[in-house]
Every structure is written in structure tokens, then in C-alpha cells.
Amino acid sequence: MSPALSSAPGIEAALAALRSPFVPGDQTTFISDLTVGELVLLEEIGYRPVDIVSGAGTASWNPQFTTSATEGNMWGRAIATAIDHARSGIVEELHRRRADGVVAMRFELERERANLLTCTMLGTAVQRISRGSGDEHPFATTLSARDFHLLVRGGYRPSGIVIGVSVVGFAARSAAQSLGLARDNAELSDQTTALYSAREQAMEMMEREAQGLGADGVVEVQLQERPVNALLTHAVEFIAVGTAVHRGPKGHQALAPEFQLTLDDQPDTTFDR
């Protein structure tokens, strides 16, 4: 290291800061991946960022390729376990940081080789500026800072991410059907009911989680579905994810938006589609 660089005052301070022991929950600086606009929107409703927090969970499962009902349940439970660990990990972290919640949380479910499933949750922890009024359970939400701002202004607050999982396996179909040789229009009622019920079960499990949180509703529900894996295309997994919300004591607050007319021109699309 050149002598000129080591004598710079900023470096001395930084090295001193690194040498001093780290005390969780005692920081004065915050770290966040929010934009300046989002920061201001948070402060406007009385929240400030604390730190970037994360949680992770894993689960694994050995498929027997029978797609029996129990096997579907096992896989469904493995997914739910991974998600649950990640979520309780991030909530624990929030407790430690004395934060009230995490916003703009990334929620990722990844399947590695050998049927290892990992779930990661990562986002910016926020804290109410004026402390006091009850220790509510910290919330974790995938809603962005602007959505969080709007929700609070509209008279609601998020109570947490809620998730439901279900897996369904199918009966094999007749040869004519699978070759696409059946000549007539017909509804396949067994398959319809199987997928329909699986979707409803994922929703129901998500709703039960929301009820467990004492929430009034769930917004931004996403129902995702995909085959369990490339070999098991007649087994489908459904995941319902949403943000549970509480209605405040005053109920819905009017936002009274006004009409705007943008004078920006749209890009020309006549020949480019």
C-alpha cells in the first residue's frame, strides 16, 4: 500500500470502524436496496429502512415416479417445508433487528440437482419511526415500497406473505386420447376435476394461513403451476402466493385520484409488431 493512500483520513476511520465489534440492532447507518423515491415514500408513512435481511430453507425428496396420492403429498410437504424455513428465518432476523417488517422481498424457489429444493427470501427490513403502539408480529411482504405506501394510505397494512402448495398426479389416458386421434369434442372430466381441485386446495391452504394471521384478506395472489419435473409431466404442482392484509380501524381511506393525460407520444408501432 502506498504511504499516500494509507494516510487518507477516510481510510483510517473505515479501518477503525471495521475493528470495532459489531453489535446487532445498534447500528446508526442503514443498508437498503431502495431507490431514493422509495425511501421518501417510506418515510412519508412513518417507516425507515434498517438493513437487508434474508432467510433460506431447503428440503429434498426422492421421487419413485409412481405419482400416487401419497407421493404427491410428500413432494407438496417438501416444498411447504422449504418455504416455511425461509420465512421463519427472515422473521427471526426481523425480531433480532427489532424491525417491524420487510418490504420488496424477493421470493425464490429453486430446484437444484438431486431433487434439492431451496427457498430464499431477501428484502429490506423496515422499522416504524415512532416506536410504541403495540408489538405486532413483524410482516414479510413481496410488495414494493410504493405498494406498501399506497396500502397504508388506503387504510390497510400487510400482515405477511401467505403460501399454499398442492401437488396432483394423473391417471394415464387411453391410447387414442394420448395420440390425439380421438375424433370428438369432449370434456375430460376426470382430469378437469383433478387440476381444478388441486388449484382450490393450494388456494385453501393459503387462505388458512391468512386466517391464522388474523388477516382480513389477501391481495396480489399469484397461482403458479408447473410439472413436477420433466419426467413427471402428468404430475403438476400448484403454488399460491399472496400478501395477507389487515384493515385498519378506520377502514378504507379514500385516495381520490385525479385524471391525468400524458402528453408523451407512444413509440410508433405501425410496422413494428
Binding site: 405498494d147 399506497l150 391468512a210 386466517q211 382480513d216 384478506g217 385516495l255
Partner: peptide
């Protein structure tokens, strides 16, 4: 009763 919705926050509030 618990409500559920796939509306975004914007849509839900509107």
C-alpha cells in the same frame, strides 16, 4: 370473511 384477490395493490384500492 377473508377475501382473496389477484388484483395488484393499485387495482385493489381502486
Amino acid at each position: 370473511r377473508l377475501f382473496t384477490s389477484d388484483l395488484t395493490v393499485n387495482e385493489f384500492l381502486l
